[in-house]
């Protein structure tokens, strides 16, 4: 697919990194402030969608990115399952056991495994949405 004009490309160059960083901020501070894995994941996916829309790419590269992003999604959900099962294996017979120390509420490093779950869910949502978008783009390209 072809990209957009020079103006859009230049603005994307400046803004892209900031949007991605904002998504990471929303994900990592999900247990302290509004946000979390779902919202942050969609913002991260939005940063990549912005990049693809502004610059365009040739189809072989897009296909490879789609494979990678799909694989990343599978890895993330697999990690979620492993994290859930670790609590089960540690002796207490509870799936999704919060086995890490809780710490004091309000600190960045606190709340046990909730930040880790936030990050994994964020990766999963971002990869899933980006894969959906790429599937539509590749479908359009292949038809020509």
């Amino acid at each position: 697919m072809t990209g957009m004009t020079n103006i859009v490309k230049t603005v994307t160059r400046i803004i892209g990194g900031v949007v991605f960083l904002f998504g990471l901020y929303i994900v990592t501070h999900g247990h302290l402030s509004p946000g979390g894995g779902f919202a942050g994941g969609t913002i991260i996916a939005g940063a990549f969608i912005l990049l693809v829309l502004a610059y365009g790419d040739n189809i072989m590269h897009l296909r490879r990115i789609k494979e990678e992003s799909s694989a990343l999604e599978n890895i993330a959900i697999f990690c979620i399952l492993i994290m859930a099962a670790v609590g089960f294996l540690l002796g207490t017979k509870v799936f999704f056991n919060n086995f890490l120390p809780i710490g004091t509420a309000g600190q960045l490093i606190s709340a046990g495994i909730i930040p880790l779950f936030n990050i994994l869910i964020g990766i999963e949502v971002a990869a899933a949405l980006f894969t959906i978008f790429l599937a539509f783009v590749i479908f359009k390209e292949e038809e020509k």
Partner: peptide
């Protein structure tokens, strides 16, 4: 119980993680 200041995240990932 969860140590999470944002209660929505606490409900989402601890009480109702399923």
């Amino acid at each position: 119980l969860t140590g999470s200041a944002n209660l929505v995240a606490g409900v989402l990932f601890d009480f109702r993680a399923y």
